[in-house]
Write a protein that binds this DNA or RNA. Structure first.
Lengths: 185, 185
DNA sequence: CCTGACATGTAAAGTGTTACATGATTAT
DNA sequence: ATAATCATGTAACACTTTACATGTCAGG
């Protein structure tokens, strides 16, 4: 039930409407957790019924401004400190890597290289983001999360480079795809 | 629809029953994709109806041995080469990091350190696994996937170490939780 | 005989995505 | 006027988890 806590966390920082929250999910939270509009309004309804948040004012166009309640803050803290085990990993990209045997080495290399490019682009994007943020105003934790993203992206780019070199059927020196006796690094 | 392709991929390597596949999901695939027994049998039924796999023999206890069909192999190859964009990231761990403001620095540090430990343990586990595998028999791609896991785990451990040092409220020199003027590194 | 591993299946509840549906307000 | 943005909500479908339900076979 993480969506619930993502919403509580955002409202703990500052009150806002569903529409406001949606924008935050699409920007700041995009690298960490995502939610669709559908999901969000549904969850806000449930949270209000559970008295973890409440409507503080109704504006134009039916706008409802939500605020976290004390019960909501407690729920958030409890969740933050509950050491529940990480969910089973599920990476479609890596799943593909596992089965790359079914296509040609050229196609495999191309796929892995694509993963690397995604990583590089993501890294570049985060670096731009990093420069544009005023870190004196942000919380330390925002910075830590950003750093995680940067390291993750860099890791993927480097892994891809390392991997491409290990896939037989060389592209650089066409024709001499040799079979090295030593596969272990 | 990745479960479908995970099953096809496994059956492309070798035929087997639902029970056999389940064990493979719980071991080799555990770091990449997971599936429950329920899901698996349901998917096998759908795949058979779609003629992407077929039953080759029925053994004792109602055992059905499945084999991938040519249509199944084509489906698998098509999926491997389709460059669909990565799904929105969703990390409960990182989500917590984002909201760590709501708890004390000590608790925050402890949480981040816990993430680091998970990474370290995971890395150690994969290194043990790496030694136990006969890489001459495995495909290159198994090796690449393992390497990804190792790099990911290492990254998380290193990130946690870096992060713990950045969270105010030092534990080493008890009592002097000062406010340094420079938060940027 | 009885336990453990083998073996398959269904049902219910929770979570997420896509599409549909509606309407108000602001700026050009 | 009219387009863009603001603003909320529902419905249908897909995927995952947990729990229930059943039965066979091999070994001690």
């Amino acid at each position: 039930m993480s969506l619930r806590h993502a919403v509580l966390g955002l409202l703990a920082e500052q009150p806002g409407s569903g529409y406001d929250l949606l924008k935050r999910f699409q920007t700041v939270m995009a690298n960490v957790w995502s939610a669709t509009q559908s999901q969000l309004y549904g969850e806000l309804g449930k949270l209000e019924k559970a008295a973890l948040i409440k409507v503080t004012e109704e504006g134009p166009r039916g706008r409802k401004e939500y605020e976290i309640t004390e019960a909501g803050r407690e729920e958030l803290r409890a969740w933050l400190l509950s050491p529940n085990d990480p969910p089973p990993p599920r990476s479609e990209s890596l799943l593909r890597v596992y089965f790359l045997d079914s296509v040609s080495p050229e196609q495999a290399r191309s796929y892995v290289a694509g993963m690397g490019e995604i990583g590089s682009r993501r890294l570049a994007h985060l670096e731009r983001l990093e420069e544009s943020v005023d870190w004196d105003l942000a919380s330390v934790y925002d910075r830590l999360a950003l750093e995680w993203g940067k390291r993750f992206s860099r890791m993927q780019a480097e892994w891809a480079e390392w991997s491409v070199a290990r896939i037989a059927g060389s592209t650089e020196t066409a024709g001499d795809a040799d079979a090295p006796g030593d596969d272990r690094g």
